[in-house]
């Protein structure tokens, strides 16, 4: 670093004023608390989407299943207790209240990602930290959305672990696999199942399900119908790279 005297007065770094410094410190403390909460939630096996006994029942609100696991969940790889997204039909519309909550949390996740890109200042960090606290139920998903892209083996090694904020994703989709006659062992094999951030999973699945001009208004899922395994994998890997899940 050059000695201060060698810099002109206007280009010398100015010290943060007291307010900005307080905002920066508060933001850092909130982010550290948030990281501690996520560690705690992961250790406790907390899963926001784990089914509960419905209201009105004497045990209403409790997690269903004697060992805390979700009732009727798929066994083995892919059964993370959340709604299956790799399926032929479009998923049911979520209830309006849940839709609003998810929308708010996704918008927050994207704002954080953009702030990280732009290296927003301490006030931005403080405001974000406050919004994080307001969306605490979605925190694991908001946090995981900020993950940097990972290698395929890193994504594969976490499959099946039911981590909060993550969902298992089949690179060659399960529905497609059934149509093409791919074996169950191929579809559920370690090469084909990866653990990805929840919101990224939604984004990738949304791309597969949407009519696409590139394919004459077929969905990408339909475009791939009749193609061999390697074609499905090629497109699946490209989708994960493009959506910043895969390095």
């Amino acid at each position: 670093m050059l000695p201060k005297q060698s810099l002109s007065k206007s280009s010398r770094p100015r010290p943060l004023n007291a307010r900005a410094m307080a905002g920066h410190i508060a933001g850092e403390r909130m982010m550290a608390a948030f990281a501690r909460f996520q560690t705690f939630a992961e250790k406790a096996g907390f899963n926001r989407d784990q089914p509960r006994v419905p209201a009105g029942n004497p045990e209403g609100g409790r997690w269903s299943g004697s060992d805390g696991s979700s009732q009727g969940s798929r066994t083995g790889i892919g059964g993370n207790g959340g709604p299956p997204l790799d399926q032929e039909q479009a998923p049911k519309q979520p209830p309006k209240e849940k839709t609003s909550r998810i929308k708010a949390a996704k918008a927050l996740a994207k704002r954080i990602a953009q702030q990280l890109l732009r290296r927003a200042g301490p006030i931005g960090a403080l405001i974000t930290a406050i919004e994080l606290a307001e969306n605490y139920s979605q925190m694991p998903s908001v946090t995981s959305y900020q993950d940097a892209p990972k290698t395929l083996s890193e994504l594969q090694q976490n499959a099946g672990k039911r981590r909060p904020g993550y969902e298992d994703h089949h690179i060659v989709e399960q529905g497609a696999g059934r149509h093409e006659g791919f074996s169950r062992s191929q579809i559920d094999g370690a090469d084909n199942v990866v653990s990805v951030p929840t919101y990224k999973h939604h984004e990738i699945t949304g791309w597969y399900n949407k009519p696409n001009k590139n394919f004459g208004m077929q969905t990408p899922r339909n475009y791939l119908r009749g193609k061999d395994w390697s074609e499905h994998v090629r497109v699946g890997h490209e989708a994960m790279r493009t959506f910043k899940v895969l390095k």
């Binding site: 479009a90 998923p91 519309q93 979520p94 839709t99 609003s100 998810i102 929308k103 996704k106 918008a107 939604h202 949304g206 399900n209 949407k210 009519p211």
Partner: peptide, 11 residues
């Protein structure tokens, strides 16, 4: 609609 994962509405 995409923000809310409302796939049918999106389509």
């Amino acid at each position: 609609a995409m923000e809310g994962d409302e796939q049918a509405r999106v389509n």
